[in-house]
């Protein structure tokens, strides 16, 4: 059974996605290993183990900083060369919200994800609303709700990281550096919490396999596009 495939991701954006994922995994694991303090580290075995693997805390810090700079630099470069074609449309897209439709999507999708379609029908009957999950654009509102903090969180993480690096060249006030460390930790924690949902939705959740495959091939089957991103497909067909 052959299906029409719809172009969804460019090769560069696929590369950036996996570049981001790889950097995140490395930076998350090494960053966790940099926290060594009885009051701040709930998993003390981790920094001990990682420092042995890297041959000391100094090497661990250096590796974290080098990959961190690569990550931030990579996105800066990507942002510059794809400002008009990728960045602006992306920002416009994630900030475009259809309040009624998207609110209903959050309610129905939320009930379906946790209670299932059957109970969604029951709840919809009781509270008198349409149990059909509303159509969505290139991103659904759930993706948008994660994309906004992920983008701004990423910027905060990069900026606070830069403050810490500037501290080592004597260009940052100690009080700034102390706040940068804490903000770095809090932001990574919150974005990571959202990332768990992202990883589940994109690679494990039922019916999402075509989305996962599209992060390698760049295309999705038309049926999938109609089911998950109908407004985008309609737009795509028009153009």
């Amino acid at each position: 059974m052959t299906q029409t495939l719809i172009h969804r991701h460019t090769r560069l954006s696929i590369f950036m996605h996996w570049f981001n994922a790889g950097c995140w995994i490395f930076l998350l694991l090494t960053g966790l290993g940099l926290i060594r303090n009885d009051d701040l580290q709930p998993f003390p075995f981790w920094p001990t183990m990682l420092r042995t693997v890297f041959g000391g805390g100094g090497n661990l810090l250096l590796a974290h900083e080098l990959i961190g700079i690569t990550w931030a630099g990579g996105f800066l470069l990507y942002g510059i060369i794809r400002l008009k074609s990728d960045v602006f449309p992306f920002i416009r897209d994630i900030f475009t919200v259809d309040i009624r439709r998207d609110f209903l999507w959050l309610i129905t999708k939320g009930i379906q994800m946790t209670l299932g379609y059957k109970l969604l029908g029951v709840v919809a009957e009781k509270f008198d609303f349409n149990p059909k999950i509303p159509d969505q654009g290139f991103y659904n509102i759930g993706q948008k709700i994660f994309a906004i903090p992920a983008v701004f969180g990423g910027m905060v993480i990069a900026a606070s990281g830069i403050v810490m690096i500037l501290s080592q060249t004597g260009n940052a006030d100690t009080e700034w550096v102390q706040w940068a460390i804490v903000i770095h930790f809090i932001t990574v924690g919150l974005v990571f919490a959202g990332l768990l949902i992202h990883v589940f939705m994109a690679s494990i959740a039922a019916g999402e396999k075509p989305a996962f495959i599209s992060m390698f091939t760049g295309t999705v089957p038309e049926d999938y596009a109609r089911h998950h991103h109908k407004l985008w497909l309609d737009e795509f067909k028009k153009s």
């Binding site: 930790f185 990571f192 768990l196 589940f200 494990i204 959740a205």
Partner: peptide, 22 residues
């Protein structure tokens, strides 16, 4: 700190519940 670890833990638990349901 414990609050942040808590949020990460809760989301991980949420993912596990969704996985179990699935």
């Amino acid at each position: 700190g414990p609050l942040i670890w808590g949020v990460v833990g809760l989301n991980a638990l949420g993912v596990l519940v969704m996985l179990g349901k699935q």
